[in-house]
Design a binder for these strands. Structure first.
Length: 414
RNA sequence: GCGGCUGUAGUUCAGUUGGUUAGAGCACUGGAUUGUGAUUCCAGGUGUCGAGGGUUCGAGUCCCUUCAGCCGCCCCA
């Protein structure tokens, strides 16, 4: 029997209901804030990611779904969506004046990784990207949007961690400080950290090995090495978040796995997600647009895991709310013709009605209406036709009554 | 990419030191009831024991390979 490809899954029933619920919330909030949706291709040329996410990142050097297509192009199924959005924004000249440009996306992403709970090879992200504005105010707006969204979903008590990773001007000095600190006690660090200190020294800071965390005691703080502009930026963002009552903690060891971040970096973890605890992450990426060949454009954004949001929603609220339609069951040829006429009117008025089209006996029709979870069964036979009514049976209480045909639409919507 | 565990009906699971025809609850199908579901009663097992190979007189059970899932590492959403 054919099976879905390893690491991919079919979404249906309760899962897809949660996905829809989450996406609808997101779209509502994005539209309120003036964000426009953008949909970029799943396939991108490999260079888009090598030049943005960074060759030293795990995403690029071990997790990409890449292949040669029939035209001998080296393509990748996108492992994240920011690089593609930036590529598209440059290609279509959306960023030429450095006007604010607010974009969001919802879509599947692909990383070739070992399966684990909450980690799939095809997973979904919702993301927000804010282009053209370098201020901490634009970051506060984006984070406020994010927390409005989380609040609409009923998710509270999530802890926002923030840090500043500085800029390309002040980072070299910090790298030097970290290297000096590392070399003085290198025998205490794990093998991975020895690799990281060469490739991306910041990543030593968030090594999960307990020994490394202990060895990091007293490590130089990037916040002590920020230049004046970055330090002021960071302080201003913290003041704005406090003023907006968005709770956060400062985590000087927070480093993100993508190379393009500058200044603000942040993430939210959840203890309800097991080992794959990252729910969302983001930050400022002022150099990326230029790096990919566009105008020098500041930018800030985040991405949240839809699959993991759905896990949290299920844990917090149980099954997704479901509104099953009423079922109209016609009995006999004359009633069937009349039923088509009726449902067309009801549908036009926005009523949720499913038409029984099997010409089956009533018992069978009632049985499947019940299994479907329908609230109402609407029976239309010759007797009802003559009187201009139908028999409406409430399937949860078992009571039934006659409704005038002209009243049905109003009663269904009540 | 590394380590550990699991896989039996639609589903949740049982199945003894390897031993006859692989079982149970729920679900499902038919009937009691051809204009009434859910509830009740009666009847029905619906299976390539994940797949392939091996050991054996004999394999759901032991061995190897493989596929899939779960848990952890790495990483991240």
């Amino acid at each position: 029997m054919a099976q879905s490809v390893k690491g991919t899954r079919d979404l249906f029933g309760n899962d897809v209901r949660w996905f829809q619920h989450i996406e609808e919330s997101a779209r509502r909030v994005f539209h309120r804030h003036g964000y426009e949706e953008i949909r970029t291709p799943i396939l991108e040329e490999i260079e888009v990611f090598k030049r943005s996410v960074g060759e030293s990142s795990d995403i690029v050097h071990k997790e990409m779904y890449d292949f040669m297509d029939k035209g001998n192009r080296h393509v990748v199924m996108r492992p994240e969506n920011t690089a593609g959005v930036v590529r598209a924004a440059i290609q279509h000249k959306l960023l030429i004046n450095n006007d604010p440009r607010l974009l969001f996306y919802v879509g599947p992403q692909f990383r070739y990784e070992r399966m684990q709970a909450g980690r799939y090879r095809q997973f979904w992200q919702i993301g927000a990207e804010s282009f053209g504005v370098a201020t901490p105010e634009s970051e506060a707006e984006s984070l406020l949007l994010l927390f409005e969204f989380l609040h609409e979903l009923g998710l509270k008590h999530l802890q926002l961690s923030i840090n500043s990773v500085g800029t390309s001007e002040c980072r070299p000095a910090f790298h030097a400080a970290i290297r000096a600190f590392f070399e003085a006690r290198q025998e205490r660090f794990c093998a991975d950290c020895h690799r990281r200190i060469q490739e991306n020294p910041l990543r030593v800071l968030d090594c999960k090995v307990p020994g490394c965390q202990e060895a990091l005691e007293g490590h130089p703080l990037i916040t002590d090495h920020l230049d004046e502009a970055s330090r002021a930026h960071h302080e201003r963002l913290k003041a704005l978040l406090s003023a907006m009552d968005i709770p956060f903690v400062e985590n000087p060891r927070l480093v993100r796995g993508l190379d393009y971040y500058s200044r603000t970096a942040f993430e939210v973890l959840s203890s309800d997600l097991g080992a794959q605890s990252a729910l969302l992450g983001g930050g400022r990426y002022d150099g990326l647009v230029k790096q990919l060949g566009g105008p020098d454009t500041p930018a800030f954004g985040w991405a949240i895991g839809l699959d993991r949001l759905a896990i949290l929603m299920q844990a917090l609220h149980g099954d997704a709310p479901v509104q099953a339609p009423a079922v109209l069951i016609p009995l006999g040829d004359a009633a069937t013709l009349k039923a088509f006429e009726l449902v067309r009117q009801w549908w036009a008025q926005g009523c949720r009605v499913q038409l029984e089209t099997r010409n089956a006996n009533l018992k069978k029709a009632m049985t499947s209406a019940n299994r479907l979870g329908a609230g109402m069964a609407l029976l239309l036979g010759d007797g009802e036709l003559e009187k201009g009514v139908l028999t409406a049976k409430n399937l949860s209480t078992g009571t039934q009554e006659e409704w005038l045909l002209e009243d049905v639409a109003a009663k269904l919507r009540a």
